[in-house]
Each structure stands twice: as C-alpha cells, then as structure tokens.
Write a protein that binds this DNA or RNA. Sequence first.
DNA 1: CCCTAAATGGTAGCGGCTCTCATCTGGCGA
DNA 2: TCGCCAGATGAGAGCCGCTACCATTTAGGG
Lengths: 147, 147
Amino acid sequence: MAAAAPSWVDLTLQSLRGEGFRNGGARRAVVDLLGRQECCLTAQEMFDRLRDEGNPVGIASIYRVLELLSEKGFVQRIEVGSGVARYEPAHHAGEHHHHHLVCDRCGKVEAFADEELEAAIHNVEGRTGYRVAGHDVVLRGACGDCR
Amino acid sequence: MAAAAPSWVDLTLQSLRGEGFRNGGARRAVVDLLGRQECCLTAQEMFDRLRDEGNPVGIASIYRVLELLSEKGFVQRIEVGSGVARYEPAHHAGEHHHHHLVCDRCGKVEAFADEELEAAIHNVEGRTGYRVAGHDVVLRGACGDCR
DNA sequence: CCCTAAATGGTAGCGGCTCTCATCTGGCGA
DNA sequence: TCGCCAGATGAGAGCCGCTACCATTTAGGG
Ligand SMILES: [Mn+2]
Ligand SMILES: [Mn+2]
Ligand SMILES: [Zn+2]
Ligand SMILES: [Zn+2]
C-alpha cells in the first residue's frame, strides 16, 4: 500500500522548516488548531479557543502566523462581508476544497462544494492575463432559520 | 420603438421615493456618482471625488447612503481582502453584471464577466436551502505588471 | 409658506488589525 | 552538552475603517 499522505498540519510545519523558519510554540499551536477545523475561524476565535485549551497565544502572534500562512498559500483568507477576516486551511483542489454561504441576517457561515462551478472558474482563469493564485465564491442570502 | 429603460440612477432614486424616503442632497450625489462608475469604489474614494467635484458630502452620510442602498439591493458591497469595503451598482443579471480580479501585490481591481460561471452558480443556488440573494466571485493573483 | 419627520454632517468612540520593542527560545555550531 | 543569536513571541500603543450620537438643516406634503 502507498504511504499515508502527510496531514495538512505536518506538511505546513515541515515546509516552513524547510524554508528556514523556526516554528515556535505559537505557530505550532495555530497550525494545529487550524488542522482540526472543518471550516473558517476568525483570529479572535482562535485566540479564545487556544486560551480555553490552556495553550494561550498572543493575538499579535496569531495575526503574524496567519499572515505568513496566507503568504505561503497554506491558509485561505476569507471575507464574508462582516468586516472580520476568516481563515481556513487551503485546499486548492480535491475533497476539502469548498466555498461559503453566508446568512445576511444572522451571520452564519456554511460550506458548499461544486465541481461544475470549479470547472467554470478554471476556464475563466486562463483568459484573464493574471497568474491566478486562488479564488473565493460567496453566496449571500437568508438561511433556513432566518428566511 | 420601446421606451428607453430608466437608468440605474433614476430607477434607484424613484424606487426610494416610492417607499417614502426623501432623497436629500447627499443621497442624490452618491447615487449619481455611483451611476457614473464602471466598477467598484470605496467610501473614502467617493468622499474625495465628491469633494473634488465641488459637491462635498459628509463621510457619515456616504456610509448611511451605502447602507441603505445595500439593504435595498441597489448596490453590491464587495470585499476584496484589503479590509476596505467597495461598492458598485448592483446588476443581478444582464450586460453589466460582473465579478472581480484582484492583484495580491498592488491591489488593483479589475472586472470580468463569464456566462458559464453564472450558470454554474445559478445551479448551485437551487441546492443550498438558502434563499440566495446574491453572490461574489473574487479571483486573486498577480496582474500583468506584477507577475 | 409652514411644519415636521427625515436627512445630513461633525465628531467621538469602537473594534479589528498592525507596529514596536523588550524578552524569550529553537536549533545549530563548537 | 551548552552557549549563542537570529528568529519568534507577546504586551500594549497606535492606526484606520466604520458606526453611533446628536445638533442642525431640509424635503416636500398640507
Ligand atoms: Mn473553488
Ligand atoms: Mn455573477
Ligand atoms: Zn441565518
Ligand atoms: Zn498588480
């Protein structure tokens, strides 16, 4: 059988190591937390969860880690219109890649995935003149509870 | 021949009038400015342009107008990742409807349109359980100048 | 014209995020 | 194994987009 694919957490930390970064406690904690999420978190949510888990990390370090991970393409930064950035592990393709549905009224964020949509986006990318690094799709509306 | 379709500016102001709103000078100035744009502007850009045109409008009024226009669906609020909201006339379908390409490096925002993408999004909307009111697509990457 | 509720604009305040700097530490070389 | 030090961390000040507040102005029906 093939060797198990490295987890996103291991891949991320090892890649950074390979580039000469040091991976102190704050970065390891944030990467580990992100690796346990299904969908996006805000920086403040990460701060609160890490504190509650007994592994507090400074908010400045959280933002710094997220900036580095964004730059290197390991996390996707998502804006859903509330003025707060959200972050999640980036899966450029494959089973985990998804987009977001946001309730205009209660702010709930849910995930969806669609292959036809991905194909259409891929077709557009080739015609833009940009070297396209990623994409976001946000559907806005009223969730089942709010409509 | 058919009567000319009312402009977005006239449609917007008349619809608000019909709902009992009063359309003072600030609101007329902001709607008029938006009606002259090809793509999205920030609130601060609107403040500066209106001042430069000799028709200054308070920044608070600009945000208030944009909030009302957003609520009523006359403008689309767009977040492209820089922490600043942008706004443009909403065209839910038809020749003016488009999405955005953002350069990660220099921040430039350009528009693109694609029918196949719109069709794919429409197909997704039906399966979500949400009453979907709108959607955003942002492609991120490096523009021709920056790559 | 007048009246009144809606609209406006200056400004204080809020909150997310960034910057600065003193301190700490991962991990390499001796 | 141990000391070194560049990179990492965290507390707190500061920045900036946006909102709240309230005194003043004004749209527009009567
Ligand atoms: Mn996608
Ligand atoms: Mn569209
Ligand atoms: Zn909801
Ligand atoms: Zn660029």
